[in-house]
Amino acid sequence: MKKKQNKIIFVGLLPPIITGQSVATAAILDHLRKHTNYVKVIRLPDNLTPKSSVQKILKWWQFILVNLRFLWAAGWSSKIVYLSGARSFMGTLRNLPMIAWSRWRHQRIIMHYHCGDYTEFLSQQPNWFQKVSCWAHEQCEDIIILGSSIRQQFELNKDVAGKLRVIPYGISLSSTEKKYIESSISLLFLSNLIHTKGYWDVLKAIDILVNMWQYRNLTCDFCGSFMTNSDDPTNITSEQAKLNFDNFVEKRNLQNFVSFHGPVVDEKKKKFLKKAHVLLLPTYYNTEGQPISILEAMAHGQVVISTAFRAIPDMVHDQKTGFLLPPCNANAIAEKIKWLIDNPSQYSEMSQRALEHVKSNFSMQLHLKKIEAIFFEYESYHHNSSV
């Protein structure tokens, strides 16, 4: 395939920072590098909220450096600017100079949001900030969001609503077949262990199954890093959260049923995805968008137990490919796991439907095809208008 000639400035969160956003952004970047002659990358710092004065100063300095690198890279000849959308006060201000420069130079701006609560965030900000944010969105030609169910979060006005492009995440598919529950069931929590991701609800559900209902043929693997977040009601450090987790497991005699493995990537992650029957992610995380771990699990034939939150209903069809439960309800999680154990044939049917659903709607090939169409429609338009 002949490579496109557009010069692209690519601003996004990338590995080694490991989040669903960084993994998805890296896949887009790799694809663009294969299909265009010039992609200049500007890496964004992590999305963690600074707490101390020193951390805030460091964050502002990082933002200044990002903009200086952008101005150096964008220059005068760039045609397209890809920019990860910000759902924070500081992140929005970080993006403004890049948007202003790109608009002044008549460069096509593609904004990509990976969150699902933008209007909720904006409603808590000062009036002047809301107006500035609307202006920034109006300067973009395209605004990519993750799902139809969160579209209303980004319809700031009629002009912005017309720019929205719904493109869900995509994942590489394997030749996995549907799964069967035989002598035991393997459960998986695959996400950073943030309180509002629901890991405590999962842990309590395991306690109910093992110690109250005497279900002993099960294991649950927790894979991720303990992290804090601005919406964490416990207000404790990640170290204390890990200690509380370990103490609960020991106190409730769950050592033979619960294992913590830390963050997992590549082949190690694939091992857990292949092993597990059910993914547990009862999230109500404030910036949740479309958890990639759900798609990865479904692509491996897992039934998903999650919540009807943000863009998750676009991925998980309740009662068909998984279960969508109210948040903070360990008993409901335990009941659904029990039902799957007691109904293995229905489990296998749901596993098959999960596989079919993700293959039809969330393949990496389909995702990148939609992304590519947005990036390179500029070249087609520019070529046709020059004829």
Rank of each mutant, 00 (worst) to 15 (best):
S102A: 14
F129M: 13
R108P: 00
C115E: 15
W101F: 15
A100K: 08
P97H: 07
Y118D: 06
H137I: 06
T119Q: 14
R165W: 05
S78A: 15
D117I: 00
V160M: 05
P168A: 01
Y113T: 07
A100E: 10
I167A: 04
Y113N: 11
C134V: 15
M98F: 05
Q139Y: 09
R94F: 05
F89M: 00
Q130L: 09
H112T: 09
G170Y: 03
A161L: 08
H106F: 02
G85I: 02
V160K: 06
S84R: 11
E155R: 03
R94K: 15
A161D: 11
Y82G: 02
P97Y: 05
T119D: 10
A100N: 08
F121S: 08
Y169L: 11
S149Q: 14
S172R: 12
S84Y: 02
W135S: 12
N127Y: 07
L96N: 04
H112M: 09
E155P: 01
R94A: 09
S133P: 04
M111P: 05
A86C: 01
V132A: 15
R108V: 06
K131D: 13
Y118P: 03
I144Y: 08
I143C: 07
I80Q: 09
R105V: 00
L96P: 03
E138H: 12
G85D: 06
W76V: 09
S78Y: 07
F89Q: 01
T92N: 13
F129C: 11
K79Y: 06
E138P: 03
L96F: 13
R103G: 03
D159M: 05
L156V: 02
S133Q: 14
W128V: 13
F121C: 05
A100Q: 09
I167E: 07
G91W: 08
W104D: 01
I109F: 03
N127T: 11
T119F: 05
R165D: 06
V132E: 13
Q139N: 13
F121K: 06
E120Q: 14
L146M: 14
L83F: 07
Q125Y: 00
L156K: 01
A100I: 15
A86F: 02
C140N: 14
S78V: 11
K163R: 15
E138S: 14
I171A: 08
G91E: 10
G91Y: 08
I99F: 07
D142K: 14
Y118I: 02
C134Q: 14
F89D: 02
S102M: 07
N127C: 03
V160L: 08
D159F: 02
Q152L: 07
L156R: 02
T119I: 03
S148G: 14
F89W: 04
P97C: 06
V132G: 10
I171Q: 07
Q153V: 04
E120R: 13
I144T: 11
R165K: 15
Q139H: 12
I150V: 15
W76T: 13
A136T: 11
C115W: 09
S148P: 08
L164N: 12
W76M: 11
N157A: 00
Q130E: 15
Y118S: 03
A161S: 15
S133I: 12
K79L: 07
A100F: 13
R94I: 04
K79P: 05
M90V: 01
S88E: 01
V166N: 04
E155N: 00
I110E: 07
I144G: 11
R87G: 00
N95A: 13
C134E: 14
